[in-house]
Design a protein around this nucleic acid. Structure first.
Lengths: 170, 170
DNA sequence: TAAAGCATGTAAGAGGTTACATGATTGG
DNA sequence: CCAATCATGTAACCTCTTACATGCTTTA
């Protein structure tokens, strides 16, 4: 997952470690620590997926290699494992996937969210009318899950519509 | 965090391991694995925070002890560390916190979400009007963060209003 | 000139997961 | 009778964090 994030960010252009941490934080869903970032950079360098060049001062600028680009596309598929973070990373780097395959990623996510919504609705409605009814805090938690999943699907539908529009325009 | 979840669920009444896993999954935000659940139950038992009794068949029903109840209240405070999962657990077991202190938990969360919203808005607006504008996928990601944080605050405000109403009614 | 931020790195450990192993019970 | 679900547990591993260590550069 971290490997994917690093390779994805390095496709935008060369970056050094500190900058990568900030860029990843700016995406909004992951404040990675240096203690995992720097060892990961070393590992990726040893595997030949990124290359280190001397930057200004003590900075080490990394750039992605050819094999890194290949691996990145593999990881983009793997990231679609149903996890929220995985999807957010997929989306952040979806622009580097070839256009015909982008819609598939969005639709897979939609399917996963529809399933989540169904489960969330069932446990909310079941709990609300069941014998041992949860307290209002737990009911609120379940209701929030339903509502926020619905909102996510609506947001995703906008994205999908935009994607179809872009595909039709091209 | 897992300790807190276990102790919280056991305050509802005695449960065995398998049942705890399902109950935790039903809350909606954590599918814990047996590989972490069973060792945690052993550890809590050794520490005297829970007690094992023979249930039906091979089942081991656990019940919370007096020191477990004390620890649970400590953990309820610790869980308010800004993480989403921490807050959701706090909320799931907020009914076991003495009523005067409940509002504080909700308001702390509101403060944290307001800060998150400010950061999310700044990076979204900054990115949209900046020099190297991110692609539409990353913009969508940032916009979603703004929208869903706003929705969470609105939802939390409903909860806070309900809490004030309950406090006034009592 | 002191504090804050920039910049890289290591060691230890927390906190999980997956895979494996076993076997009983229930439902189609 | 076969598959699915119930039920408990262990071992190996993975990912990431925290705390520590170092030293430079910018800014108030």
């Amino acid at each position: 997952m971290l490997d994917f994030a690093i390779l994805g960010l390095l496709r935008d252009g060369p970056r050094h470690g500190y900058e990568l941490k900030r860029a990843l934080g700016d995406l909004g869903f992951w404040q990675v620590s240096f203690g995992s970032l720097y060892p990961a950079l070393r590992r990726l360098e040893k595997q030949g997926q990124i290359e280190a060049t001397k930057g200004e001062g003590r900075r080490k600028a990394y750039r992605i290699s050819g094999s890194g680009r290949e691996r990145m596309v593999d990881l983009l598929a793997e990231a679609g494992d149903g996890s929220d973070r995985g999807f957010q990373l997929q989306l952040a780097f979806l622009g580097y996937l070839d256009p015909p395959r982008r819609l598939g990623v969005l639709e897979d996510r939609r399917t996963a969210l529809r399933e989540r919504l169904q489960g969330a609705r069932e446990s909310f409605l079941g709990a609300r009318s069941g014998a041992r009814r949860p307290d209002r805090y737990r009911l609120a938690l379940m209701e929030r899950r339903v509502r926020s999943t619905e909102a996510d699907i609506a947001w995703l539908d906008e994205l999908i519509a935009g994607e179809r529009g872009a595909a039709a325009g091209a």
